[in-house]
Simulated scan of single mutants.
Amino acid sequence: MNVQDVLPRDAIPSIDDPAFGPTYFGDPNDEVIVVDGDPPRAYPIRVLSYHEIVNDTIDGRPIAVTWCPICWSAVVYDPVVDGRTLTFGTSGKLADDALVMYDRETESEWKQPTGAAIAGPLEGVRLPAIPAPVVSWERFVADNPDGVVLQPVRGDGTRSPDEVYDMDPYERYAEGGEFGLYGMRGEGERRSWDRTDIDAKTVVLGVEVGDEAVGYPVPRVRAAGGVVTDTVGSSRVVVFATDDGVHAFEDPGFDFERRDGSIRADGTTWDGATGESADGRALDRLASRRLFAFTWQDAHGRDSFYAP
Score class of each variant (00 low, 15 high):
Gly275Arg: 03
Pro22Ile: 03
Glu208Tyr: 08
Val204Thr: 02
Leu127Phe: 11
Ile58Asp: 12
Arg222Trp: 06
Ile63Met: 03
Thr274Phe: 05
Val76Phe: 03
Asp303Lys: 07
Glu109Asn: 13
Arg126Met: 13
Gly60Ile: 02
Val203Gly: 01
Val81Cys: 04
Pro69Gln: 06
Phe292Thr: 13
Ala74Glu: 02
Asp211Met: 09
Val65Tyr: 02
Thr87Glu: 05
Asp279Val: 02
Gly183Cys: 05
Ala223Tyr: 01
Arg289Val: 12
Ala95Phe: 08
Asp103Trp: 06
Arg289Gln: 14
His300Ser: 08
Arg185His: 12
Lys111Pro: 07
Gly206Glu: 14
Val207Cys: 00
Arg9Lys: 11
Ala307Gln: 10
Glu187Val: 10
Arg281Ser: 10
Val75Asn: 07
Val54Met: 01
Ile15Ala: 00
Asp27Lys: 14
Gly215Phe: 02
Gly186Gln: 15
Ala142Lys: 08
Gly226Met: 07
Met184Ile: 14
Phe25Asp: 00
Val237Met: 03
Asp230Tyr: 09
Ala307Arg: 13
Pro152Cys: 09
Gly180Thr: 04
Val125His: 04
Arg172Val: 13
Pro131Gln: 14
Glu107Arg: 07
Gly215Ile: 07
Val54Lys: 00
Phe140Pro: 05
Arg220Trp: 01
Tyr43Trp: 05
Gly147Lys: 08
Val207Gln: 02
Glu163Thr: 12
Trp72Tyr: 15
Arg172Ser: 15
Val209Leu: 06
Trp67Asp: 03
Pro113Glu: 09
Thr23Pro: 07
Gly83Ser: 08
Pro40Leu: 01
Arg139Lys: 15
Lys201Tyr: 04
Leu291Asn: 12
Thr229Asp: 00
Glu276Gln: 02
Arg302Leu: 11
Val54His: 03
Glu175Met: 07
Asp82Leu: 13
Glu171Asn: 02
Arg126Asn: 10
Ala74Asn: 14
Trp193Ala: 11
Val238Gly: 13
Thr196Tyr: 14
Ala129Arg: 09
Ile63Asn: 04
Glu105Ser: 14
Leu127Lys: 04
Ala265Phe: 00
Arg236Asp: 08
Gly233Thr: 06
Asp38Met: 02
Asp5Lys: 13
Ala132Thr: 10
Leu291Gln: 13
Arg139Tyr: 10
